[in-house]
Amino acid sequence: MFVGYVAFRDAAKPGRRRAFFLLLFSTLLMVVNPRWRRFAEYFPPFAVLFAAFALEPLVRRARERFTAREPAESDGTTNEGAPTGETGATDDARTPAPARVERARAWEFVLVGTAFVMLAAPLVWYARVTSQDIAGMAAPDSYRGGMAWLGDHADRGELIFNTDWDDFPKLFFYNPNFAYVSGLDPTYLLDKDQKLSELYAKLTIGKDLKDDEIANLGPLIRDNFCVGEGEHKRCARYTFSDHEHQDFYNNALDSGWFDEVYHDDDCSILRMRDQKGTPPPDNSPPDEQGDDSDEDDSQGN
């Protein structure tokens, strides 16, 4: 973009209108790119097109100057001073010498090669970084075990409360017979129901929940996240979470509304109870843990 801005001139000329349009469009993409990531794929090619159209007149003029033959001198006079009728010398002066044309082509090759190397070097680096990122991602079969358990124990068409929308492709791949609360992009849920989307984000992040909201986490999920109508209405009874949502996981178990029914190195599945009960021992409030330990001591005595 910087090269295009420096090289751009004379927007009003007919041949510069395309460059002017690309200047406006690529600048718009550059401005919105930090705010909306979905434009990241569009900005680079249009920025390159803008730079190419902005540089094209400069490259053309440089080529013409470099390949044009210098006026030949004869008897101390140049072709510019030749009589009007003597056009042979003038035509010969306008014809580029083969050697100059070859040198111009050589310089063009050098410049193109240099530009290619300068562009290829970052691409190689980006490819390496991307390969490292892919290597650090979850394995393709990371959720196979959890989805296999759900397939054996949950009813067909069950609504699964998945805590991360970008897990949806794997979940749907392993079992397309379930419905999932959010997937592909969080804006789908936001467009469907803004309040429900905000509640979903609040529950899954789990950092700003009040004590009464944690205590009623089960009903909050069961009463708000449902599909279907009438006798076909199904509300979420299972939650599927990776191990990056520890706040949600702890809040769910602390609430006394959930039991952990599946756990492996990649995911956890919680099933909602019909009634609120006692949290699992590791997730009981400190005062209840103290009461339990006192009872154990008294029984031991």
Rank of each mutant, 00 (worst) to 15 (best):
W149I: 00
D292E: 08
M118T: 12
R222N: 12
R94N: 07
G290T: 14
A252F: 01
P140L: 06
K170A: 15
F225M: 01
F53P: 01
A89V: 13
F178P: 04
Q194L: 05
D297Q: 09
S131M: 11
E158G: 07
I205A: 02
M1Q: 10
Y200D: 06
A138S: 10
A179M: 09
M147Q: 03
D291N: 13
D152E: 15
G113F: 09
E158A: 15
T78N: 02
G218N: 01
H243L: 00
G218Q: 00
L199A: 08
M147W: 00
D282Q: 14
V59P: 00
L29K: 13
L150A: 07
R105K: 11
V48F: 10
L150Y: 05
P14N: 00
E213Y: 01
I269A: 05
L190P: 00
F43Q: 14
A62G: 15
L23V: 00
P44T: 06
D265Q: 10
A252C: 03
D254W: 03
G183T: 03
G145W: 04
L199S: 08
K202C: 05
E80R: 13
N301T: 14
Y126G: 06
L199W: 03
V3F: 10
L24Q: 04
S26C: 04
L55F: 06
P219I: 10
R18M: 08
N283P: 02
C226H: 02
G85D: 06
L203P: 03
S255W: 03
T90S: 06
P140E: 11
K13H: 11
P176M: 08
R65L: 15
K195A: 13
G290F: 08
V124N: 00
P279E: 12
G15P: 06
L184Y: 07
T27S: 15
I160E: 09
H153A: 06
A68F: 01
L189Q: 11
R237G: 08
T130S: 14
D212I: 09
E80D: 04
D282G: 14
A51D: 14
G81A: 03
L190F: 13
G88P: 00
I221D: 07
F172A: 13
M1D: 09
I160Q: 06
K207E: 15
D155A: 14
I205K: 08
D185S: 02
Y42L: 04
L217I: 11
T114V: 15
A40Q: 05
T90V: 12
D296T: 09
R38C: 14
T239C: 02
P140Q: 03
A52L: 13
R37F: 11
D264T: 12
D287H: 05
D274E: 12
T78M: 01
A51G: 12
T163F: 03
A201I: 02
D75S: 10
E158R: 12
K192C: 02
A51F: 12
F53R: 02
D247P: 00
E102M: 15
Y249D: 01
F8V: 05
V6E: 11
D266A: 14
Y188E: 02
P140D: 08
D91W: 09
R100M: 14
D164I: 07
Y143M: 10
P83N: 08
L196I: 01
W149N: 02
F172R: 12
D75I: 05
K207I: 11
T27N: 09
R156M: 04
L159S: 08
Y174N: 05
D223P: 00
E198H: 07
A121V: 11
Y249G: 01
